[in-house]
Amino acid sequence: MSHAVPLESDSAAATGGPGGRGLEWFGVAAILMLVGAQALGLLTSPADRDMGHLQKIMYVHVPAAWNAFIAFFVVAVSSLLYLWKGQERHDLLAASAAEVGTVFTALTLALGSIWGRPTWGVWWTWDPRLTSTAVLLLIFVGYLSLRAFIEDADRRAQWSAAVGLLGALNVPIVYMSVRWWRTLHQIQSTPSTVDPEYVVGLRANAIAVLLVLVYFTMKRYRAARAERLAEQLEEQAALEGRGA
């Protein structure tokens, strides 16, 4: 009796073969870039006229926020692709990006809170930017628990794609919140409102965190493929066991 492996076999990636090692090196490079970018930002930027050294929190808070947005953009695209083509890999990529995006959103909120206390004077306030970001986090926490609780793979993927799209729709709301409504949070800075001494460190950190995001997502995606493959083999074994 032969059984078809339902997912394209990429056991090299799933079991950490040569393909896996390439990703690990990429991960090491990404982490080293992050260390370097942080050192660059911390060492080259002068104290800000208003904030003093607190400006340096920008180099972690802002890249975390931007990259959370990028992760949720990947969720949106992958979810659409899944709904359109019904291919499992798009569902698994959406799930991986959603988990990483959730981590970065939580970091954005925590870092923003630490930044807010000494500059604004409060750890938290229910202004539209903070509230909509909290809602974004909640939706994706909901998305991840949804995935954990639906056993049937097709139904899990369909529900997830719908919720993932709905959640990602929040990203433009979060982004525009500072322009649409009155907020305590300031509107977006641009290179013309930020002196070049700070722009360099910010860009370096944004790129480094982007590389970390790519590594996290790819690594999570490989694990998700392996999980799914195992799930399919287990289901098959159960069916054959029942048939015999």
């Binding site: 208003d50 904030m51 003093g52 004077g121 409060v122 305590l184 977006q188 800075s189 409102t193 700070y198």
Partner: peptide, 21 residues
């Protein structure tokens, strides 16, 4: 009962001779 400072979107290095804060 609560005083919050709203920061602008500007980040500027101190002008020559000026010390932050």
């Amino acid at each position: 009962t609560e005083l919050m400072v709203k920061h602008s979107n500007e980040y500027r290095k101190p002008e020559h001779g000026e010390r932050p804060q």
